[in-house]
Amino acid sequence: MRPLRSDHLAAWSRTFAVQGSWNYSTLVGTGIAYAMLPLLRRIYAGDPVRLRDSVERSLRPFNGHPYLCAMAVAALGRLEQDEVDPETIERFRAALRGPLGSVGDRAVWGQWRPICVLLSVLLFLLGASPGWCVGVFLVLYNVGHIGVRIWAYVTGWQAGLEVGRLLKGAWLESWAERLWPANILLTGGVALVLADLVVSNSTVALEPAALLGMGAVLTLIAFRFPRQGGRVAAVLLVLAPVLWLLGGLVG
């Protein structure tokens, strides 16, 4: 039986919880099965044996970006409705895992989220109230977030087996490639303004020009060697209160 609009809505809304039972055995597989259930119940209404088989297939290991898992849920549901043979479904699942993960990671985690976060921090540093900054961040980010989920689900259902081909060169990838320069510009700008805020709020005498120079050099080194740069950043972060409290103790 063909799923109703309400079944699609239920499956789509369940994709928000697709990582709810993430575990090291099936990764996001159990979440995919949970999200697909409204579709599978309709497709296999009155046929408990086939329903059981399809749920068992859906429970198998799967991974992908959580927002783009909506595409997998819809596409796999479409294959079940079209009575595609189980071997093809399994191969399709395996083929979808890589692209769904890499495209989503690069576009959403790599670009969209940092840009929204940095814009919000910049607003705060420019003097906007915390309520506005948080509101702007949540609205801006989630317009993109929910838009991606809707697009992913609709595309997955319409394309079915063809979804992997559509994902290559999709607008998400080209967006990610266009957005990264803005992301890096914002990172540099926000870091400098935030550092200035810390310095100007402190009651100790500092040499801003020397700090600026050292900061610029350290930024470039960390950019070239991000893993080591990250470790240095963590050490400096922990060192800061230790030095402060030690200074207070020894007078």
Binding site: V204, G230, L237, L239, W244
Partner: peptide, 18 residues
């Protein structure tokens, strides 16, 4: 202490940018 935090922010921004 303040210099340490500021330089930490700089290093973190470099790694985040990458």
């Amino acid at each position: 202490a303040i210099a340490s935090l500021v330089l930490g922010i700089a290093a973190s921004a470099g790694a985040a940018g990458r």
